[in-house]
Simulated assay, not measured.
Amino acid sequence: MDRLIYTAMTGALHTMTQQATVSHNLANVSTTGYRTQSDTFRAVPVYGESLPTRAFVLDSTPQADFTPGAIQQTDRPLDVAIQGSGWIAVQLENGEEAYTRHGNLKMDPDGVLQTQQGLDVKGETGSITIPPDSHIAIGRDGNISVLPTDSRVTAVSIIGRIKLVDPPTDQLVRGEDGLFRLKDGGEAPASEEVMLIEGALESSNVNAVSEMVKMITLARQFDMQMKMLESARQNAQQASEIMTLRG
């Protein structure tokens, strides 16, 4: 009886948590570079001398699906998509490094290259500043070239290179802000293998149909766990009545 109650109770609780994850995935179905988040259940026994029959259901550490999304051409100079595996390094406000595949870049009023969330894109030597009145081109290797709008100047200058990294996926952890970081809190080295596609963006890898099916399945699973709790209550009540009659 104990095992039934504890398993159904904690299972229902974490089913609701998984529903929240599915809802989050569906809300980001059109978010550039988003990686699908997933959860799995695992059973954990309750330790203690008087609790040999009880077990909890726990939600394991959320995992991410690193399958690349579809590439969509935009022809915007500041849009870049990563071809295959890899990440764009950004600098957080506290100075830490994080990673994203959201390649919809912009320039702030001072010309600093940033993500749409206002985070500085890291270059190999720090932040990247675009000179005013310049045409910009981002190469496949992350090199940023500028050409002044003044027609009398024809020299192309390379002003920096976006830091592109490709750490093993098992070393990455997703933060609450949606960005990825190394589990040990360090910084990944720049990779020469990561390539960009200029004038394109990578779509989210969320499969909306699959997530909807999962949401329905979780709803039915929650109903089943609640019915199990009701069955446990009825069994306990009937057992109590039998003991009363015997008394």
Rank of each mutant, 00 (worst) to 15 (best):
L4E: 03
I144Q: 06
Q225H: 04
P131V: 08
G48T: 12
I242H: 06
I5F: 13
T169F: 13
T32G: 00
P52M: 05
T10L: 03
K183N: 07
T32Q: 03
Q114C: 10
G139E: 11
T67Q: 12
R35M: 05
R76I: 03
R101A: 04
E176S: 10
V173C: 02
A239M: 11
R181Y: 12
G103T: 02
M243A: 14
P62Q: 05
I128V: 12
L51C: 01
T10Q: 05
L172N: 00
D133K: 09
I159M: 04
V206N: 04
D166F: 07
N205C: 01
P148K: 00
M212K: 14
I216N: 12
S60K: 02
Q238R: 14
L218F: 07
V165F: 06
A55W: 01
A219Q: 15
L78C: 01
L218Y: 04
K183I: 10
K122I: 09
N104C: 08
A236L: 15
I82H: 04
I82A: 01
M215A: 07
D2K: 06
P167E: 02
M9D: 04
S134Y: 14
G178S: 00
T32W: 03
P45I: 12
D65Y: 07
T53G: 12
I5G: 11
Q116C: 09
N143M: 11
V57K: 08
T21N: 06
K227M: 10
G178N: 03
D141C: 08
A239H: 03
L201N: 00
L182R: 06
R152A: 15
P148N: 01
L92N: 15
